[in-house]
């Protein structure tokens, strides 16, 4: 028999209750149980960055995080960073302006990573941005534009 546990998660400032098996990752909890599908599954192995979200303000990979682990912590996903009136977060706006994506599948992870990268103080130069955004693969090859978007958002921040 599989066991389920009850979890109460704090996601984007709201409380979400769910019953899941302990082995369910945060990524699967978001996508399959909570209809928060903005966080993407690219590899499910910690190798691509598409599933990046924030736990207690730090960027992490939700595919290698158990949902059970984040009970009592604050989770932020791509659905939770725009203003309440719908105005885009400056990083989101910069991504649109600089065409920092094509297919859009890596984009939520890139943006969550970029928001943290700026907050960490790792967006001081193009070279630093490239290195600190390298945990987010983009197969469409939007890297130049991602750097431009992060640079602009960092300058505004």
């Amino acid at each position: 028999m599989t066991r389920t546990i009850h979890l109460s998660l704090d996601i984007n400032g709201g409380r979400y209750d769910l019953d899941v098996e302990p082995r369910v990752t945060l990524l699967d909890a978001l996508r399959e149980h909570l209809a928060l599908t903005g966080t993407k599954k690219g590899c499910d192995q910690g190798q691509c960055g598409a599933c990046t979200c924030h736990v207690d303000g730090k960027r992490v990979l939700s595919c290698l995080t158990l949902a059970a682990q984040v009970e009592g912590r604050q989770v932020t996903t791509i659905e939770g960073i725009a203003a309440e009136n719908g105005e885009l977060h400056p990083v989101q706006a910069a991504f649109v302006e600089h065409d920092a994506f094509q297919c859009g599948y890596c984009t939520p992870g890139q943006i969550m990573s970029a928001v943290a990268c700026i907050r960490e103080g790792h967006a001081g130069s193009d070279e630093e941005i490239r290195e600190y955004m390298s945990g987010n693969l983009c197969r469409c090859g939007a890297y130049n534009n991602i750097v431009a978007a992060v640079r602009e958002a960092a300058e505004m921040a």
């Binding site: 903005g38 993407k40 996903t77 989101q92 649109v96 994506f101 859009g104 939520p108």
Partner: peptide, 17 residues
Amino acid sequence: TRFEGNLKVTGGATYAL
């Protein structure tokens, strides 16, 4: 700018799964 851009940067673009 990309017509569907806002959907893609907000997580609102819905993919197959």
